[in-house]
């Protein structure tokens, strides 16, 4: 199975993705506070924590879509400040698939909207093969099962080459065999010099640092919205 993912020689440039003293408030409630983390090349970081401790919120904050109440986020590539959006690839809870598109159309439009150019057909076919979706290439996505949809959403990491991957529960609905594929994708990415943060309740099967969000929930009782 390992030979299916081609070896890519070019490693990513030196990157430092840092968040310092991050705190987020949602709807007047402190979700978490005082989180600091730093990601460099070849770092795999797992976010653990009970439901509601803010794993998704942290990923949303790190991807720049949710402004933190305290702290800041910075990305440096080759010791220069870099634009976060150009270096991230994010998988959310939602899959970002269009029911009426076929899988090929989805890949095509997705790449064009990010890169402006259509993807190379070989790259698309290779990505589909890695996630074992090639037999569904011309099927409209509305006929997919939820596990197949999740795998189709994972395609974005293979179609577009970005150094930092943020994944929010990538294993939901994915069967055992494909979880191994996911682990392999992550392993290759880390080997190439990329970095990844994965929020999950499952064991991916790869060694990585663990950040447990259980320790960052505010100790004191909330005073409500007007506090």
């Amino acid at each position: 199975m390992m030979n299916k993912i081609k070896k890519i020689q070019s490693n990513y440039p030196r990157l430092v993705f840092e968040a310092a003293n991050l705190g987020v408030k949602r709807g007047g409630r402190h979700v978490f506070g005082g989180i600091s983390l730093a990601l460099t090349n070849r770092t795999l970081l797992y976010l653990h924590g009970a439901n509601g401790t803010g794993k998704s919120t942290l990923l949303r904050t790190l991807s720049g879509r949710l402004g933190p109440a305290t702290g800041n986020i910075s990305l440096q590539i080759d010791t220069e400040d870099a634009i976060l959006n150009d270096n991230l690839m994010v998988l959310d809870h939602l899959n970002g698939l269009k029911n009426t598109f076929t899988l090929l159309e989805h890949c095509n439009y997705f790449v064009r909207i990010i890169n402006g150019t259509p993807p190379e057909p070989q790259k698309v076919m290779h990505s589909l093969e890695v996630l074992k979706l090639h037999h569904l290439a011309t099927q409209p996505i509305k006929y997919f099962s939820s596990g197949q949809r999740r795998r189709a959403a994972l395609l974005k990491f293979l179609l577009i080459d970005r150094p930092i991957w943020l994944m929010d529960e990538p294993t939901v609905g994915v069967d055992a065999e494909n979880r191994k594929t996911l682990a392999m994708m992550l392993e290759q990415h880390i080997k190439k010099g990329g970095a990844a943060i994965v929020a999950t309740h499952d064991d991916i099967g790869l060694k990585g640092e663990i950040l447990s969000l259980d320790h960052y929930t505010p100790k004191q009782k909330d005073m409500g919205y007007w506090s």
């Binding site: 150009d86 939602l94 970002g96 990010i114």
Partner: peptide, 13 residues
């Protein structure tokens, strides 16, 4: 917004 593609669009140039 509902199917999540608006989030993906946020990562376009």
């Amino acid at each position: 917004f509902e199917d999540g593609s608006l989030d993906d669009l946020a990562f376009s140039p």
